[in-house]
Every structure is written in C-alpha cells, then in structure tokens.
Design a protein around this nucleic acid. Structure first.
Lengths: 148, 148
DNA sequence: GTGATTGCAAATCTTTTGCACTAAA
DNA sequence: TTTAGTGCAAAAGATTTGCAATCAC
C-alpha cells in the first residue's frame, strides 16, 4: 500500500496544497479527521465535537468556515436532505444518498447504479436557456417495522 | 367545466373540510391563494407577502403553522433544495424538481418520466431493517451561458 | 513583517413556541 | 360555551460576520 488511509496528516497536507488552501493547524486537523478514514458524512456541530475530543481545539465558527472552504474547493460535497442543518460528504462527487430522518444517518448510494438509472431517465428538457448542472437524489428510508 | 381552477374559495373550503382542518379565515385565505391557480412553489415568506398584498392580513407565524398543517394533512408537499429556507409545493406528491439556485425558481418534473426512470434504477438494497419511504430528485439547472 | 486565518461574541436568518385574545362550532 | 386557532413578541437553532489577536510564509 502506497498511500491510502494511512498518514492522514501528510495526506491532508497534500490535499490542502493541491487546492491552494494554506495548511493551517485547524485546517490540517479537520482535514485529517475528515480525509483520513474513507467516506464520511458530518454536520458542522459533529465535526466540532469530534475535533475537541481528538484534542484539536478549533472554534465552531472555524469549523463552519472550513467546511465551506473545503466544499468550495471541491474537497467535499454538500448533501441536501433538508433536516434543518447541512451535511457534508467527504466524497465530493457523491450526489446519491440514503437518508434516515429518525437517526439523521446518511449513506452513499454507489455512483454506478444511480448513474445507470438516470441514463434511462427521459428527463424532460430543462426550461429554455437552462442546462443541467447536476442531479441530486435522496432516498428516504425508515425502519421496516410499523411506526414512522 | 365543473370545478377546476375556478371558485378558489369554495374549493379551499372543500379541501380543508376534506382533511378535517377547521376552515378559518386565515386558512381559507391561504388555501385560496395556493390551491386556486395550478401547481405552485412558495416559501413561507413569499406566501406571507402575497397574502398581505392580497388584503389578507395573516401573521408570519400563522403562515408557518398553516403551511406545516397543510403539508402534514397531505394538501401540500415539502421540496428539499437546501437553500436555507423551506419550499412548499401545492402538488403534494411531486418529488422531482428543477431548481435554479440563481433565481430560487422551482419547477416540477412530470411524475411519469422520473417514475419510469427510477423503475430502472438498480437501487442497492437499503441497509438491513430499512425500507424506502420515498425518493426525492432535484435537478440543479443554471443559465446555459458561461458564468455559474 | 505582512497578509491570511482564527476565535470570540454579536448579528442574522429561518422557524418554532408561550400565552392572552379571538373566532368557529 | 367550549375548544381550536391566531397574533405577537420572545425563543431557539443554524450559520455568518466584524474585528482584534495570531499564525504561516
């Protein structure tokens, strides 16, 4: 294994430099947490707590700013589930998700399946003068037992 | 033409009774505005302004409450586009939309097209013990000319 | 050093809520 | 009359912002 999930700090450094974001303590800390362990979905508040617990005392405002910067830089993607707060996905190009309202849990849906499906979609032409930017799909799930 | 888009007030009355919501002045006013003219997408703030302009002095809190009640009663649907505020659709079963971030405009995508498309979707089985509740699709569009 | 970044607290925005008042049945 | 619904203003939650202090280069 050459790189991969190991050496989260070095990896974070590399990726920050790649998008021209100055690798500060806070950004490196957050990037390490986020980019170190496979696909993740977090809210600002969750990441904030996690950082403190891990011994990186960042402020909540900085977490918000950083998530926005990462997203804008293409390091992450925003997941729109409409639960009042924003979720961020370490997989920037992942636009297909399962969402469990009850638990607030989000899981990626593999690109291929949905991509293939959408290719069949006879999407009606967008309004005149408009082009499709991207397609977001949220599959809402719940416990199979009654009550929901 | 028997019913249709005419007589919005009577129509509103009928629909409120149908879902067992007491037809008060405010609810009748808002329902008339919403259900009187084909499919619509509104935010609470927009509807609030529209009501005042139309000479129905409802409070913003009531608009929020009413939209929630209508949605819960199945008269409307919530559209999740993640722009910070909530949009409501007078078509309760419409889960497929075009969304233009620049203008905040939302347009329905006909059910059939997307339904058919999604039938092809080899949606990976939802996590164990979970079932699909519904699927939301947001097609983000923008002006075709450069700048976006 | 110098400009970018951070932290804090205050500000903003959307939505909800408590409670006295009013209207529907 | 009796209960549900409304309005107002305050509260709550998420996110952004202003500005002085701090850090990366």
């Amino acid at each position: 294994m050459t790189s991969g999930t190991t050496r989260p700090y070095a990896e974070a450094m590399r990726r920050l430099k790649a998008v021209n974001l100055r690798p500060t303590r806070q950004r490196l800390a957050l990037a390490s947490l986020l980019l170190g362990q496979g696909p993740r979905h977090v809210t600002a508040e969750e990441l904030f707590q996690e950082a403190r617990t891990a011994g990186f005392p960042v402020s909540l405002a900085t977490v918000y700013n950083t998530l926005n910067q990462f997203t804008q830089a293409g390091l992450m993607g925003e997941v729109v589930v409409g639960s009042g707060q924003s979720y961020y996905d370490t997989n920037a190009s992942s636009h297909y998700h399962y969402f469990d309202k009850a638990t607030g849990e989000i899981v990626d849906i593999p690109e291929e399946a949905m991509q293939a499906a959408l290719r069949f979609a006879n999407l009606p032409a967008p309004p005149p003068g408009k082009v499709i930017e991207r397609v977001d799909v949220v599959v809402r799930i719940r416990d199979s037992r009654r009550n929901g």
